[in-house]
Amino acid sequence: MSKEVVLDCLGEACPIPLVKSEKAIEKMAVGDVLVVQVDHSCAMKNVPEWARKQGYEVEVEEVDDGEWEIIIEKTK
């Protein structure tokens, strides 16, 4: 059974969202989903970029003005 982990990075500046995401996904099992909540426009770019480079499935959703959820599925 896969699970979903929500990581609250609202109000955090670079590189904290990315470093926290790295740490969080390390502890997760293949198939789990990590949802990173950010409101820093730079993190909205560098977190998906990092995750795609790792070969994970990534989707970015704009949930509010200046707020995004980066949905990362640990595919391997």
Binding site: V33, E59, E61, V63, D64, E69
Partner: peptide
């Protein structure tokens, strides 16, 4: 990825109800 999409849509509908995006233009 199907699983991820499912989760996403279920979460989005939950989140979408309470938050309404304003247009800042």
């Amino acid at each position: 990825m199907t699983e991820g999409v499912e989760r996403k849509s279920s979460r989005a509908s939950a989140g979408g109800a309470k938050r309404k995006k304003k247009n800042q233009l």
